[in-house]
């Protein structure tokens, strides 16, 4: 099983794409650790995580079909 993660804004400079797939894990903490290993620059980037279209606070359980998004702030006008 794989999880699909949608990448927004300038975070795609780090991932190189706006959709990435990683082997399934059961929590967002595990997911973020795996992502930061694969893309070290994510470690210092600013973003929030949405799971099933809700912004999460702290570690959150993931289901096999959870939709995940990483959203950075931007300020352009």
């Amino acid at each position: 099983m794989e999880l699909q993660i949608t990448i927004f804004g300038q975070l795609t400079d780090i991932t190189g794409t706006n959709l990435i797939r990683v082997p399934a894990v059961s929590t967002t903490d595990e997911l973020l650790a795996a992502l930061k290993q694969q893309y070290p620059a994510l470690g210092t980037a600013k973003f929030v995580v949405a799971v099933d279209k809700k912004i999460i606070q702290g570690n959150t359980e993931l289901a096999a079909n959870s939709s995940i998004a990483l959203l950075p702030p931007f300020s352009g006008g």
């Binding site: 300038q10 702030p73 300020s75």
Partner: peptide
């Protein structure tokens, strides 16, 4: 959503991005 501002340079603005 974003509790604290990023510091200058951490996120690009329109002139840069």
């Amino acid at each position: 959503l974003f509790p604290q501002p990023p510091v200058e340079g951490e996120v690009l603005n329109c002139a840069e991005a």
